[in-house]
Design a protein around this nucleic acid. Structure first.
Lengths: 275, 275
DNA sequence: CATGAAATCTCATTATTAGAGATTTCAGAT
DNA sequence: ATCTGAAATCTCTAATAATGAGATTTCATG
């Protein structure tokens, strides 16, 4: 909790606002973070002036409206979303199911968009909801296409869950399973995230062929046979590939008034070097 | 652009991502902000590690997934939204219209939620979209209930628009009009934001009786008579009042494990003292 | 009008950040 | 494979800006 720049100390405050605790008093924040009173209030002033935090009088602090505004901007701008929306729609037309677009960032999976065509969706993944990292087709569709080193790290970090699912007991064994996913091009999971639901997911790649997202269709297991699954898998894969292609292309055609970076940034997967 | 803490300098970066320019290269940011290269990259590192910025390789920087995640948390937690959703729904049941819940923050109006019951909505205000500050029923429903000083400032800042609408030519004249809104309890606007659309809005108050939001119904002018308008106005007002009441109440009943602030924070309307 | 909690301010001390320039990294060309 | 040039990071000292103890102000409440 120390050795950080003060910049980080400010932003750490935002991380405290979680699903479990969405409201904090200054007093609580002081204790939790160990910041001095004036320091904390200085930080809060900055965050609230930026609109990232607000408070209803009488209550504690909450995330602020600026967040809402930025999400709106993202919904309008995110190329992933723009190219993905059509596919989500199409994929849900053939059978009663849910289609998800999930972003892989740092060490997290986050649902970016979803479309539902069944009347009783067995699970709900609205935009913004985090997804489990160690289970499910989505998770594996990403893992399988990471560079060896990162894949192994991730497997080690989630070894217990992966074992429970029955993907193998040792790391090399599980890596082998991933190779299989890589060959087929999409991942299938039977009830790993939600009981009774089959997930079929394929990765979306960025310009450097790193997986950055996953396109997934989930469907009630009772509605579907192995043959259907492969058919669906092909469709999902084709859609994901198309999104990947469009991502490359949009970059080339964007009429940017200005210097384009010659060397791509890689701000997507932050802590890559930890592997 | 100087004299700020460095904390502010970091967060200013986020403000550059607007509807007009959603993608920035580091080079552009350096020029725009006048930051040194190492400095800028340091800042970017912090922002990207916080997930507030990302970039698809080959493209510039964009707002990051953390924003999506925080908006999700807000959608789940925001008491305004929680208490408002039902009312939005009910208000759209009586006639084909759109109902909006709009947050007033700092010097901005931001749509927080909307529900539509007409098949051809004449205008669209999804969550996150900013609303005009100088026109429309929403704007006036807030302005009318601000402390005199702030009201006057706001009027002065938007005097041209207010004149165009025909609310008066001098500030005192317009203030008088606001008093009228205050007496009636809701504001009506004919085609001020969208031609042909009537807006009817009533304010939501926080624990200190400051307006913090506005509940609004917009309906095609052709569908409605003056009598209807008053009827609707009463409904909107009743709903807004109910939300206000629930906001107070939720505070009292929240089983907060910990110290409640005795003196309310007022982080909502940042620059109040500027008036 | 008084009270006490919450938030802000003051100012000397000290630790942190900034910046110039060298260095490394990396994608794409040869 | 190796080279090339732009992009990103690192190094290290000067100097600026953040820190925190305590005093002070603000403000809702009785």
């Amino acid at each position: 909790m120390s050795g950080l720049h003060s910049l980080e100390k400010v932003l750490v405050i935002l991380d405290l606002f979680t699903e479990d605790k969405l409201e904090w008093t200054p007093e609580q924040l002081m204790r939790e973070l160990g910041y001095t009173r004036p320091t904390l209030y200085r930080y809060l002033k900055v965050l609230r002036e930026a609109g990232l935090l607000t408070s209803l009088p009488g209550a504690g602090l909450m995330l602020g409206p600026r967040v809402v505004e930025m999400d709106y901007l993202m919904r309008k701008s995110d190329p992933l979303l723009q190219h993905g929306a059509d596919h989500l729609h199409k994929l849900t037309q053939n059978l009663p199911c849910t289609a998800l677009l999930v972003r892989w960032y740092g060490r997290r999976l986050l649902c970016i968009a979803s479309e539902v065509s069944t009347s009783d969706p067995l699970s709900s993944y609205p935009r913004g909801r985090p997804m489990p990292l160690g289970r499910g087709a989505i998770s594996r569709s990403i893992m399988a296409f990471l560079p060896r080193a990162r894949m192994v790290t991730l497997i080690e970090e989630n070894i217990d869950e992966l074992r429970n699912i029955g993907l193998g007991t040792t790391v090399p064994e599980i890596v082998d399973g991933m190779k299989n996913v890589q060959r087929v091009g999409y991942a299938v999971a039977y009830g790993e995230v939600t009981p009774g639901v089959v997930g079929i997911a394929a990765p979306v790649f960025d310009a450097t062929n790193s997986p950055i997202a996953s396109l997934c269709v989930t469907v009630a297991g009772s509605l579907i046979t192995p043959v259907h699954i492969d058919e669906l898998g092909q469709q999902v894969m084709a859609a994901a590939t198309d999104i990947s292609a469009r991502l490359q292309h949009s970059r080339a055609t964007t009429p940017n008034d200005d210097t384009q970076p010659k060397q791509p940034l890689d701000l997507a997967n932050t802590d890559r070097r930890r592997t």
